[in-house]
Design a protein around this nucleic acid. Sequence first.
DNA 1: TTGTGTTTTATTGCCTCC
DNA 2: GGAGGCAATAAAACACAA
Length: 265
Amino acid sequence: MKRFNSSDSMAALISMCPSKEVNQRKESQGYSEEFQAMLERFEQEDSYEETSLILEKKRRLGFDQVKALERSFEHDNKLDPERKVKLALELGLQPRQVAIWFQNRRARWKTKQLERDYSALKSNFDALKIDYNNLEQEHEALTIKLKEMKGKFNRNRAERNESVKEESPISGVESQKFTAQNFTGSATSDSNSNGAVKEESNVDSPRCFNESFPNSGSVINCLQYSRGSPERAFQTQFMRMEEQSLFAVNNEFCNFFSVDQSPTL
DNA sequence: TTGTGTTTTATTGCCTCC
DNA sequence: GGAGGCAATAAAACACAA
């Protein structure tokens, strides 16, 4: 059978003699005649080897034997019984020794393969780590830049609000004149078609706002649809316009400063 | 020479497949 | 149920520094 204890050499030899390799012959009806002949040769040689094995200690295989086994292993790392017996005959070994050699060789190959896999994974990991660190640094730099820009923007907005407060009061007659002009112009014509809005270019004027923020809604159109007193309508719309402009600006910058979104410039 | 670490050969027990 | 593979391990052989 397959098992034998090396400490009990006699028992081992006794159990080894009718080994499975010999028994195989009886079961290997499906193998070639050549294979059967090889087994017979083994039977004859075994009787000689058995006696010499009694006194023999564990021996390492010779250089040529290992070389041949390595060649065979490279060709195919699994043994079929026929190849095992053939190799054993060629190398003067027991088929069992060949089988054990292949088994141990497969174990060594597996260990090496694990080492190779590990080093490949490690180098991949190291490369990814370097990439990650670079990205992290880039992210930090961008965050700092973003903070600076936010601060700058807030300062600018504060200054702008200050200046608007100083210039904004539109009083009495001027206000009425401005309102009437705008209202008549917008009420009678399409601002987009003939450019009927003829007022002076003023930073805070509706037209200027319209040009600055074309998507924030046309003030002139708003005025077109208002009912009631023109002055009141203008005041209401002007307030709405201011709100819209602030929201528009804020939204735009909110998007721009959003860390999670790509900047929409 | 000897102690120690490494490699190789062989065994054992368990598992899977036919 | 037997054959064969595999993981774990024992044991012999070998390498090498002290």
